[in-house]
Amino acid sequence: MKLQCPSCGGQQEPQLICRQCGAPLPAELDCFAALALPRRLTIDPSALEERYHELGRRVHPDRFASSAPRVRAASLAGTALLTRSYRTLRDPASRGLYWLELNGEKLAENNKQVPPELAETVFEVQEQLAELRGAPAGQDGALRREVEARRDELGASMDELREKLAYNFARWDESDGSDRAELVAELKSVLSKIAYLRTLIRDVDRELESPKAA
């Protein structure tokens, strides 16, 4: 599917900026296409950032301040799309979610079961947080240290999950498609665990940071 540049008439694959005249193109692009990246899950973060800044400069509305309204509009839309795409792909977990979406899969579909060990952890830790919340200020030192140790454990679990996510990304990138169902299931499983753990860590951090009313 080719796209014709409204400014110079050049034919090209849909992309953010015309290859021939450098004008912003009014194209509907997915996040990978917006950043002119191949559809691969494994992304080098520094290359991604560099690409984002480079394209950001080239599509920037300041460059087209005196252009036709149609071009200015495309520059604005392109800038917004670029930023949205960058944010979506930058965080591996959100990239994974977006990938599922691109592949017509839904994270929550047939996926309401919290893995039992993880549910156990959630309830245990939340119990600890409630205790800490209830303990009088000044007498909560031991509890606080327990929760802080828990926080470290949870952080380590998150690191493991992120490694597992990277591994799954690589598997998907190398796959010939024959094991698609398994890859989808695995990706959903890791992403769900990350979501539950992230919420729990957020709650722990809030509790540890909240100043206790005397």
Partner: peptide
């Protein structure tokens, strides 16, 4: 019953 919403990380018992 323990169920979760993987989109937002909510857990309900």
């Amino acid at each position: 019953g323990v169920v979760g919403a993987p989109e937002c990380g909510d857990v309900m018992k």
